[in-house]
Design a protein around this nucleic acid. Structure first.
Lengths: 215, 215
DNA sequence: ACAGTAATTATGCAAGCGTATAATTTCTAA
DNA sequence: TTAGAAATTATACGCTTGCATAATTACTGT
């Protein structure tokens, strides 16, 4: 009963950092960057505002860390099943596309985050680096998968061909992802992945929709 | 010489409103939403800050007006040539796509603006309306063009078919537009429209690239 | 058991924010 | 020519912001 009056608890540094990052992300996702004030973040993380300066050198530093955290999460969500890699290249490509166009990747908060950060990417060099890295990681993954699928089907293509196909497929996925997040009511649940699979098949000249899954 | 000491000049209301809107847009495009403060906007428009409240009921009202102004400009830029409508439906579709994927539509500031506004769209009902209207205008225009091109080629399709094709083509254009704006150095000048034309041709099952223009 | 150290809270500050209102200046109609 | 109305500037107020610093609290090694 003597512990009843304890005023706070010491948490591991990594845990506190993550709590602050998650609070930041949820605030930006729900109400935009301007709502992510030092005080609002601290309140949501259930600490006082001094903690932000204690674990991050500035608010901007926290924002950058949150951006990286978010982008890494997106990367993991989209490539986890494709990396598992038990089936054919085609099945892996389909999994990659479907995961990119299904919740939780397709999500209003996720798009909101992306847009909110984009402004800061313009100025901040560190965030620009993160942005480019994430973009190329995604596109290169896509390019590799396309190459494997083509190889599997006996199609020969040049590196330049595959680069252009990857740019197009990447754009298509990004566009569908964005629109699904911004206008959630505008699409039926399975519509986005279906459109994605069909269109990417058309772009790379193969039918990806035929047997892959039972939808 | 007596006029040398004149301290300000009265301008037509419409002109002042536009000057304030343009100042707002350039600030958001260059430095993000948070840089668009009342004082910064007034300074850039070369007036004092009181003018904002004089011509708009609040800063938020100005922001909304600026958003509408920007979106209308984008709509005009993308559909002006396609509306001129002198050639075949195919030529008009190609013009529509090319204009959407070429400066000044493809532009870092333009994407920055779009992203900056997206956060406010979430809360503000009025901005949500503008956003939806712009999106559907663009997609419906695309859907109509696709229908005409198909008709021209003797292809029959259902309304549902055309809707799905329009969603896919819209996403592709949006994605390429976004990436071209955010990573200007990542693409050669003519690359984006070329990829767009080729991919949209693949999606709707026609070769759009053959004779249209001499690129 | 307890002293030292690091984590956490508490408090304060200067700057910038949006907005309201008062004081000027310009233009126009008679 | 001049009075009045509208446009524009000038000033000020209350609030929030990010950050710094001081005051507490909790944990750890010995």
């Amino acid at each position: 009963m003597s512990e009843n009056t304890r005023k706070f608890k010491r948490e591991p540094a990594a845990q506190r950092r993550e709590a602050l990052i998650r609070a930041t992300l949820s605030l930006i996702a729900e109400q935009g960057v301007q709502a992510a004030t030092v005080r609002a973040i601290a309140t949501r993380a259930e600490v006082t505002q001094g903690m932000i300066r204690h674990y991050f050198s500035s608010k901007e530093d926290l924002i950058t860390a949150a951006y990286e955290y978010h982008m890494n999460r997106l990367t993991n969500l989209t490539s986890a099943r494709a990396d598992a890699a038990q089936g054919s290249a085609r099945a892996r490509l389909v999994a990659f596309v479907v995961d990119s166009l299904t919740p939780p990747v397709v999500d209003a908060g996720s798009v909101s985050l992306w847009a909110g950060f984009l402004n800061k990417v313009h100025d901040d060099e560190q965030m620009q680096t993160i942005h480019q890295r994430t973009y190329y990681e995604f596109r290169d993954r896509l390019e590799a998968l396309i190459g494997e699928v083509q190889g599997e089907a006996g199609i020969v293509s040049t590196a330049q061909d595959r680069r252009l196909l990857a740019i197009a497929c990447n754009a298509l996925i990004d566009g569908l992802w964005m629109e699904g997040g911004v206008l959630p009511g505008a699409f039926a649940p399975e519509e986005l992945p279906q459109i994605g699979i069909k269109s990417i098949g058309a772009i790379i000249g193969m039918d990806l929709a035929e047997t892959g899954q039972k939808t």
